[in-house]
Computed example of a mutant assay.
Amino acid sequence: MADSSTPPRTAVVTGATSGIGRATALELARRGWRVYAAGRRAERLEQLAAQVRAEGLMGEVRPAPLDVTDAAAVGALADRVAAEGGADTLLNIAGGAQGVDAVADGDPSGWEWMFRVNVLGTLNACRAFLPLLRAHGEGTVLNLTSTAAIVAYEGGAGYNAAKMGAHGLTGALRLEEAEHNVRVVEVLPGMVHTEEFSKNRLGGDQSAADAVYAGVEKPLTAEDVAEVCVHAVELPHHVNLDQIVMRPVAQAAQHKVIRR
């Protein structure tokens, strides 16, 4: 946690309008960070900033409306952050899934959307912010992927492909940036019950989304994942948690979920 004698650590968090991204931005602010909260829905970012002010937290949230698939918009945010003092940490939380189609029935539009958001969105943010992280001297990139990045499953092919792409990007980035003293962390959550992920994936069908978690005792929450992300970036900089795989106890493996 920052104190009054030291400048606050500064993070850029993508996907901050809901779910894990929002929870991560909020937890960082509670710990005294200055947070640039990036996402498509400006009103939600303003609400998050207002909540931080209302709670009287040590940190600060600065809304940054943008779509991570818009490279120009991401670059403009990097210019803004540089002009306002720079940043030492980038948390690429933005992502998502569309559909549960098999490869034989794969919908290219859904697959393209997943690739743009999960892979190219991460690429855009890394390209824009790496110069700031290198200049800081002790920069950190945290990429949120998924257990879908390391274990394929039926109905998950498009999401598997996108998250495996982000996983590969992250591994290469770690090798490339070590010489610049930029550490690269990957967090790979399993079943996380958030308000939007499964509903969006299933075309807005709330009942189908509820069925995903039916009977599962204590799936992970957005706050659980946020706590792990914040812990990873607050460790002493020489400590790099390369890959953190986290699942609820009820999900013993990708294919084995205990339902009571």
Rank of each mutant, 00 (worst) to 15 (best):
D107T: 01
A97K: 06
D88L: 00
M114Q: 15
G110L: 05
P108M: 01
R116F: 09
A104F: 07
L120T: 15
E112P: 12
V100T: 15
E112C: 05
G99S: 05
G110Q: 04
S109D: 14
A94I: 11
A104E: 13
V119Y: 05
Q98F: 13
T89I: 03
G110V: 00
D105C: 04
L90G: 03
D105F: 10
A102D: 14
W111H: 06
A97Y: 12
A97W: 11
E112T: 09
L90R: 01
A97D: 15
E112R: 11
R116Q: 13
G110Y: 06
F115T: 13
A97H: 11
M114R: 06
V119C: 01
L120S: 10
Q98K: 15
N92S: 00
I93W: 10
W111E: 11
M114E: 15
A97L: 11
S109F: 06
A97I: 09
V119K: 06
L90V: 09
D107F: 03
L91F: 12
L90D: 05
T89N: 06
M114W: 12
I93K: 06
M114T: 09
E112S: 08
P108H: 00
D107P: 08
A97V: 09
V119S: 01
W111T: 03
L120G: 04
D105H: 11
V100N: 14
G106K: 06
P108E: 01
D88S: 07
S109W: 00
P108Y: 00
V117Y: 08
V117Q: 10
G110P: 01
F115R: 07
P108Q: 01
V103W: 06
